[in-house]
Write a protein that binds this DNA or RNA. Sequence first.
DNA 1: ACCTGAACACCGTTCAAGT
DNA 2: ACCTGAACACCGTTCAAGT
Lengths: 214, 214
Amino acid sequence: MRRSAGRRPSGQATRSGARDDLAGKLVGAAAALVAERGPQGFSLREVARRARVSEAAPYWHFPSKEALLAAVAEQGFASLAAAMAEVRARVKGRPQLQQLGIAYVRFALTHPSHVRIMFGPEITDKTAYPTLHEAAEHALSLLVATISEAQRDGHVRRGDPWDLAVAAWALVHGLSALLIDGQLKDRVTKPPEAEALASRVAKLLEIGLARTRR
Amino acid sequence: MRRSAGRRPSGQATRSGARDDLAGKLVGAAAALVAERGPQGFSLREVARRARVSEAAPYWHFPSKEALLAAVAEQGFASLAAAMAEVRARVKGRPQLQQLGIAYVRFALTHPSHVRIMFGPEITDKTAYPTLHEAAEHALSLLVATISEAQRDGHVRRGDPWDLAVAAWALVHGLSALLIDGQLKDRVTKPPEAEALASRVAKLLEIGLARTRR
DNA sequence: ACCTGAACACCGTTCAAGT
DNA sequence: ACCTGAACACCGTTCAAGT
C-alpha cells in the first residue's frame, strides 16, 4: 500500500524522452510477449525478465498484471483505429464500408493475440481503464461516422447509425473471432482463403446495409 | 508415461451407470467452476478439490487441464445445438433464421463462460479433440441446413449456403462476443436491452440475406 | 522515488508408491 | 486399474529493506 497505482498506463517517459523509462519498456516487452506466446503463455515475471528488472519492479509502474495488459490493449485499439483511418482516407464512396470490414479482419489475422487481449476476459472490467475505454470508443466512432456518411450519400439504408454500426462491427468481429479461434479451419486453411472469405462477407455486409431497391 | 491418455473425454461411466465414475464427476465440477469463476479463475486443482480427490487424480482420466476443458466445451456445443434444434422445430418459415440468431445470442448471454471456453484460446488445437470438433461441426450444420431450406423456400438469396451460413454465424457470434466482453456496455446495460438489440440485429440479418427485390 | 530479495500462497504436471 | 503424497518448476503479489 505504498505505491500510487501506476499512473501513465500508455507508458510515456517521466521526463521528456528519458530512455530509462521502465514503464514504456515494460509495455513494449509485454506487447512482444503477447504476440509471441498469446494470452495463455503470457506472464508478468517473464516481462520483468525481458526488461532485466526484478519480478517486483513492474508493480511500481502498474498495479497489476491486468493493468499492464490494459496498456497493451490500448495500444492495440490505437493501431486498429489508425488502420481504419487509413482506409477512410484512401477509399471514398460506396466501397468504403466493405474495405473497412476487410481491413478489420486483416488486422485481426495479423495480430490475433493482440485482438484477444483487446476483447478477451483478461481485462475484467474495461471501464476501470479510462484511456483503454476511450481508445475502443474512438475506433467504434470511426465506424459510426462511416455509416452516417454512407447514409447521407444514399449508400446505406435509413436507421439508427449506432445500430447499423454495431451490426457491421459484429459481423467483421465475429468473422475475425471464428477465423482466429480456428473454427473455420475445415474450409479455410490459408491466409489468402481467409482474405477472400472476408471479402465475400464484407460484400454481403454492403449489400445487407444497402438501401432497399438497389 | 504410464497412463493411456485419458479416453472417454465425454465422461461416460466405465461400466454401465456406475456412480463411482470420477471422469464424469470431474467434467461436472469443471463445468460448474467455469460457470462460477470464468476461464480465468478456473483451476484443475480446485476441480480436484471439489471432486474430493487428490490433485493428481484427474490425470488418470484426462491427459491435461486442456483436455478436461475440451470436454466442457463439447458439452457446451451440445447444449447450443439442442437450443438451435428446438428453435428449428418450433418456428417454421421466414422468421426461423431470425429466431435462430436470437437463440444463439441468448445462449451466449446465459452461458458466457461456457462460450469463452468453446471458442477461446484455452483449447489450443481444436482438431486434437475429435468429439469436440464433431460437436461444433454439428451445430454449424444446423445453421447451414436452415439456410439451405430458406433458399429452397425463396426466403434467402442464392449463393453458397456455407458462405451465407458463415456470415450469419459471424454476425450473431460477433454480437455475442461484443456483449459478453462488455464492449457495448455504454449503450446496452441490461439483459432486456441486449435481447432487443439482438432482435434488431437478427432482423437486419434476415433482411440482408433476403432475396433482392423484396 | 524507484528497485531488489525474499517470502507467501497458489498453479500444472510428474513420479514413486500404495491398493 | 486407479488413486495418494510429495516434489518440481513455475505463477501473481506483497513487503521489508536498500539507494
